[in-house]
Design a protein around this nucleic acid. Structure first.
Lengths: 248, 248
DNA sequence: ACGTATTTGTTCGTATGTATC
DNA sequence: GGATACATACGAACAAATACG
């Protein structure tokens, strides 16, 4: 009998904690437990799962650390919104990485969003186009009111991504934007930037609404190239030092 | 004194487990512990950290969940290669949406790889071009030997991605390819497919080696469109049933 | 081939601090 | 203020799997 190879990561590695993972992840991801829902107390859950509380806690804690759950003493354990646990783990992967990888992230974002804009021009429903316009109105209002346009900016780009009808890429964009959010925050506070962003968004919107994919791509590309330039300025100004806690 | 607001996700929520978790991440990400390294035993580590073994274990389990560490009973805990710990969290994002998911993943992959091929034609070093050629030779040998071309196929696309000099996108490609690996496996077993793939790869290689970005993009696009068609056939044939354990 | 040491897996009991009602 | 519910944390012990002489 040939000596069996040692599996690098064994498939049937079925520890109790891991089994609890799969259960918990399934509940969260499939939506049995929705965002904001409160889980049964640890002492109940471990009875349901038929494992000791310590084992369950390891799974529960792990889920909390990756951003799927949030437990508060004296209160309970709650399900986090999807965007949380999508952005956190990837954040860690880029933790040690500063200047060069910021450029890479921006490039990746520009590349994906450019293509999404093109797809959106081909595939967007009327409703989705309306939602893009809403984001523009929201930004316009924010400028009038003198408040931050950061949220409206995010909404615009996510609306475009949604209109492209590809959830994989939409998630990727959301991810990359979350990572760069720190720097974008500074960017949109710079003088005259808000108005410029608004007009770029309007150009992109017009191209999508009138079903001109290549125009939409060009407009998005131009917009993100400008953003890239501004962010580089911002990073230089703020010393490029990463803020300690991006988990907001 | 005004009653303090309850923070939705507290920033300085400093539990011992969380502190240990951040330490562990830092060690892995900064490279203090490299891929394949073995960690000190739990009982030593928890002394170093000054916490109980239970608390440390919760952090270790979280690391394992995101794919940064791998614990084996009787052996020890080891650091996983970097490529591993990017795939799990993204997998969760996709498990919620099943139906058109495969098509979306393929589309995303095609889109990213098309652009990477273009970038590779602009940026590849001689060494990187040589590595692409190596992958082609490897596939040629595999065909002659009658063995699977799956590995050579992966190597080729990763070599192209590496030559594009954007680690973020390279990781994304690796991720998406890992996810579709199940289906690609069937594809490359179909008759005549291997030879066809090889000639497509050669075309892409020539375009990159001769620094023609748009030709490289076209060639990659064509190749992946063919792949997409074949995979759709394969899925129909195999019933499209998802295999149970994507955590490979 | 066997046995022992090492290491993770699992459980229980207990004490403490905090939030909610 | 008091009672209750809950998470946080520690330590000790045994089981099971693996590595190595």
């Amino acid at each position: 009998m040939p000596r069996s190879l040692k599996p690098v990561s064994a498939l049937p590695r079925t520890t109790l904690t891991e089994a609890a993972f799969e259960q918990l992840i399934a509940y969260v991801v499939k939506g049995t437990w929705k965002a904001g829902d409160r889980l049964p107390p640890e002492r109940e859950l471990c009875q349901q799962f038929g494992i000791a509380r310590t084992s369950l806690r390891e799974a529960l804690k792990a889920m909390e650390l990756v951003g799927m759950l949030d437990s508060r003493v004296g209160d309970g354990t709650f399900v986090c919104p999807r965007s949380e646990f999508l952005s956190r783990p990837l954040l860690w992967a880029f933790t040690g990485t500063d200047h060069e990888e910021l450029a890479e992230i921006m490039e990746a974002r520009a590349l994906v969003e450019e293509n999404l804009a093109g797809l959106a021009a081909e595939r967007a429903s009327e409703e989705e186009i309306a939602r893009i316009k809403e984001a523009i109105t929201q930004m316009s209002n924010a400028i009038s009111a003198g408040t931050s346009i950061l949220e409206a900016d995010m909404n615009f780009h996510l609306a475009v991504a949604a209109a492209a009808h590809n959830d994989v890429l939409r998630n990727a964009v959301q991810l990359l934007r979350n990572i760069t959010r720190q720097w974008l925050k500074y960017k949109v506070q710079m003088p005259n930037v808000a108005a410029s962003v608004l007009s770029r968004h309007e150009a992109i919107y017009r191209a999508i609404a009138s079903r001109r994919p290549s125009a939409a791509r060009r407009a998005m590309r131009k917009h993100l190239e400008e953003t890239q330039q501004l962010v580089i300025q911002v990073v230089k100004k703020h010393g490029g030092s990463r803020e300690p806690s991006p988990y907001v």
